[in-house]
């Protein structure tokens, strides 16, 4: 890996920024250079929001994603708004409900799975991280565990880490493409 660019897109309030932060912190624990940036609108809830993470073996200057190596969208609005960053070999991960009009992608019942099996909609972001890492192993599991523990609200580590593992396992059911 020399440089990997990740976009996590969703709706304001889904914890998109936090999931980017956790991924970034995990990469720092792995000893990588990391930049995490965000795009957001005036809404605290709703609206498309996105978290960019760039992980590299070398110093990173340009802080935004130019072409995504990994692209995850949790809402149609985010998909539509950010799909311009998808290139031919991007690993695209979408929620089942998103209508995609571009090439290859992995679809998972992310939102439904979390509602039905984890009963805590707030862990959608961490569950999504599990899927990302299950498919790509972009960061080590040890580092992401540490990063989750450091960044989620006190008392919610167990449920969040469970969500991460469930997402990771679900991803392993699909073809590995990294």
């Amino acid at each position: 890996m020399s440089k990997k660019q990740i976009i996590i897109g969703g709706t304001g309030g889904q914890g998109i920024i936090l999931s980017g932060l956790i991924l970034a912190e995990a990469a720092v624990f792995d000893g990588k250079y990391v930049v995490q940036a965000q795009n957001y609108g005036p809404e605290s809830r709703g609206g498309a929001s996105r978290s960019d993470v760039i992980i590299s073996d070398n110093e990173i200057h340009y802080p935004k994603v130019k072409n995504a190596d990994i692209f995850l969208a949790l809402s149609q609005e985010a998909y539509n708004k950010y799909k311009k960053y998808i290139k031919d070999d991007t690993v695209v991960i979408l929620d089942e409900n998103i209508n995609a009009d571009l090439g290859n992608y992995f679809k998972f019942n992310i939102i439904e799975f979390v509602y039905n099996n984890l009963k805590k909609p707030m862990v959608i972001n961490i569950f999504s991280l599990g899927i990302i890492n299950g498919l790509t192993n972009i960061v080590t599991n040890d580092s992401i565990e540490k990063a989750i523990e450091k960044n989620v609200p006190r008392g919610t580590f167990e449920i969040n880490y469970l969500a991460y593992k469930k997402g990771y396992e679900l991803a392993k059911t699909k073809e590995k493409r990294w």
Binding site: A24, V34, A37, Q38, P63
Partner: peptide
């Protein structure tokens, strides 16, 4: 806004 909000190692 970019350098104030971005995180970096």
């Amino acid at each position: 806004e970019v350098i104030a909000h971005m995180r970096e190692c």
